[in-house]
Amino acid sequence: MTLFNVLIVTVACLLGVGLYGLLITRNLIKIVVVLQLLVKSVVLAFVVAGKVSGHPGIGESVAATIIVADTIVAVVALALAVQVRIRFGTLDIPKISSLRG
């Protein structure tokens, strides 16, 4: 088993765990955590792809951009979750959608 295989299996496992969490989670803050897990696997995949294709700089550049964008997504999502908790008193997504009237 080569290094490339190990890394791709790691990416697939992290992606699978993240997707599983996204399917079974109903808490807004937990969803932010699970999205972060998914993005970790994507960053690893981009760096491995850049290294394999012989252009590591491009993969690392895209990975850095993804990290910045994902952090902003996490920041805004957490702020929205805090606001939802203040206004609705819950973080459960079905309860929030049923409160729409």
């Binding site: 109903r26 937990k30 702020a79 979750a81």
Partner: peptide, 17 residues
């Protein structure tokens, strides 16, 4: 995340899916 949890409170359990 810890800051948001301190504002929200730790009482928010994850409901079943």
């Amino acid at each position: 995340l810890v800051y948001a949890l301190s504002m929200v409170g730790e009482d928010t359990q994850d409901p079943p899916s």
